[in-house]
Design a protein around this nucleic acid. Sequence first.
RNA 1: GUGGCUGUAGCUCAGUUGGUUAGAGCAUCGGCUUGUGGUGCCGAGGGUCGGGGGUUCAAAUCCCCUCAGCCACCCCA
Length: 416
Amino acid sequence: MSPLQPVRGARDILPENILTHRHVEETLCRVATCYGYSEIVTPVFEFTEVFARTLGDTSDVVTKEMYTFLDKGGDSLTLRPENTAGVARAFISGGMAQKLPLKLFYRGPMFRYERPQKGRQRQFHQVGVELLGVQGPAADVEVIALGAQYLEWLGVLDKATLELNTLGDAESRAAYRAKLVGYYQDHREKLSEDSLGRLERNPLRILDSKDEGDKAINAGAPLINESLNDASRRFFDQVQAGLDTVGVSYTLNSHMVRGLDYYCHTAFEFVTGALGAQGALLAGGRYDGLIKQLGGPSTPGTGWAAGVERLAMLDATAPAAPRPIAMVPAGNSSDVSRRVLTLTQALRGAGFRVDLGYSGNMGKRMKRANKINACAVVMIGEDELERRAATVRDMDSGEQTEVPLDSLQSHLARYR
RNA sequence: GUGGCUGUAGCUCAGUUGGUUAGAGCAUCGGCUUGUGGUGCCGAGGGUCGGGGGUUCAAAUCCCCUCAGCCACCCCA
């Protein structure tokens, strides 16, 4: 372990990459705002109990992926592996049950102790939305439409497909689970070792196994569709009808399930083939049981989370870095440098992006102006000072204009 | 957590069967150019060869351990 490298799976986001990262986050802010969602920020750590109770004792996240530690007061804390539990906790502690329906979005770092690979880090960033307090399928439709809109604004929607499934309500899910367990028990000698474990812990998970033998068995497995009660079936139909109405296309995938226990009804995932094995870009579903399970009032919820780094890897629309105006004093008269400094201060105060070098002759400063991709250079020497003017050079055309200092700001307005 | 592949300059990579002071391109910095950027020419700086140990007269090169990245599994954003 060298202290001179970041902790495994953690990364610096360097200045040349931050614009894309920020663009991915800010686009979510814009889209979510259009849908009437407000931002919420919860702590990056919670009492371990918050995650242990909501994620389920058998989930991988809880059993092996959490960053858990004792603080100096002896409390067990955990760096959040996802944000839904934290939002649910905030909902309860903040007494927000009076404000339903509640439409929230968030962004920030998450932590999972996993083996890193492409598109998977131990500290990574997610954006997400949560819609609390809406019973009906309109909520699921809105949230999925928001996700599709978001990917479209990022310019990555055409690289993703929306997969949709239902897990049914508690009754349907229990019935299905029983059927599945029966089926797999009959084939248990052919199941992979991993799937034998799943059979104990989370039999639904066998459905999306990548093992070839498992896949063959899954081909004959009972479908959730056959276990849905009327209410669950109607709910799923309405979600699909709603998506048709808003023009979001999807494919049904009866083998897509959820790793976290609190999901019910709708499960969905925008997946891409462009990121190797890490295909999930944006995924979520309905979690009606979560808040009650945490000790709050029974409150339905639906939402999703998306991986910022994964989206950034696909995003082609990130804006170019803004171009500054460079101030270039000529000669080394102290009158000139004082005047350039006050002008720089005034321009910056007026909202211009202005670069003022720290040293060097004119040639050096011009080179620097070029290197930082300045759109214009404001040159001032003793000559200009006498005439109370500045020479403005457009760095693309090379054209130079002498501008009276009084009208410098209005002349530079085109570069703002 | 399991399995496989890979680590040489800031970046992309050369480096012969182990053999002198480890090279190139790009980038950086300086000069040609002390009131004018990009192109050009000249020059310079920059390397614990991922780290540690071992074999050997001699290791970037062979062996072991370790760290990190990548790929797949597990799982997931």
